[in-house]
Design a binder for these strands. Structure first.
Lengths: 151, 151
DNA sequence: TTCGATTTGATTGTGCGCAATTAAATTTCA
DNA sequence: TGAAATTTAATTGCGCACAATCAAATCGAA
């Protein structure tokens, strides 16, 4: 089996945007976030901030480390993001008394209440997408599998 | 048909990260870019810069507008990115003499030559992924379809 | 117990990504 | 033709995203 080279037709084909997996992934991810934007703007949230709230609504308090593991984001991204959310009084940041290295993120009253306004967001996006449920579920499953290959 | 509310089980389920399509898309996109990173670093390229070069290698000269349409990026992203690539002498920027509003992006000699080193990148990523070709192709097709729904 | 290794977050610096605005060139059409 | 509308980039400002580094707390083995 010969390896493709720059001179081989295979290598040239692989260098075309149209044959790649990563580009539609990259573009669709940005377009999806853009589809969220008008809905999230009403809540004064960005998409990554919304993701943090999803986890807090679902699980209650989380350490920065846990949020990072679940969202695949590091402290260089999360620390300033969480500080902005703290300033807006949606969440609180405090050191774990049993292990002062950890910072525990919790919801404020406003943060809890935001959930009621956010509950309309996923359904609105589903409607925007207008994708058959079977296709949606299959794509979600495949993306989760891809993620296990990459993470 | 009742609309889901925050109190309904459906709405609560939709607010879980695990049931969403956008999050695995968002996470997989970032992890994919991270998988490219060590390979692109050898070429002194970021992933979006690599995308620009893919188009220039494939099509030759492109205006900023064309690059923006093909990559779904706007001038606020492309202009500084292209200026950095110009500084590194991979491409040239010049006004279209027939329409001074347009800026034409072309490859330098170094930019052309970079193609030979980049041709190994897609195959290396495929190997890293180690995904059956059928699954790869199906996922790519579905993501392209998703992109048409979103773009 | 103590000191080296590990864990955890914070900080710094660079590069996107995008909304909003501006400015210049071109096109349109009255 | 000439003013208004449109097109195209550039600029500005803000928020991620992440590599690299640092500092503090904790853990663990000798």
């Amino acid at each position: 089996m010969n390896k493709p080279t720059v001179h081989s037709p295979e290598a040239a084909a692989l260098l075309k945007l149209d044959n790649q997996l990563c580009f539609p992934l990259y573009a669709a991810s940005r377009m999806f976030t853009k589809a969220y934007q008008p809905l999230l703007q009403e809540l004064d949230l960005t998409y990554p901030q919304y993701l943090v709230l999803l986890l807090l609504w679902e699980h209650g308090e989380r350490t920065v480390k846990q949020l990072g593991e679940e969202l695949l984001l590091d402290s260089g991204t999360l620390t300033p993001l969480l500080k902005r959310m703290e300033q807006r009084q949606w969440l609180t940041r405090r050191r774990d008394l049993r292990d002062e290295r950890s910072v525990i993120i919790g919801l404020t009253e406003s943060g809890q209440q935001l959930r009621e306004r956010a509950c309309a967001v996923p359904a609105a996006l589903l409607e925007k997408l207008d994708m058959p449920e079977a296709e949606f579920n299959q794509l979600r499953t495949q993306l989760k599998h891809l993620l296990t290959l990459l993470a």
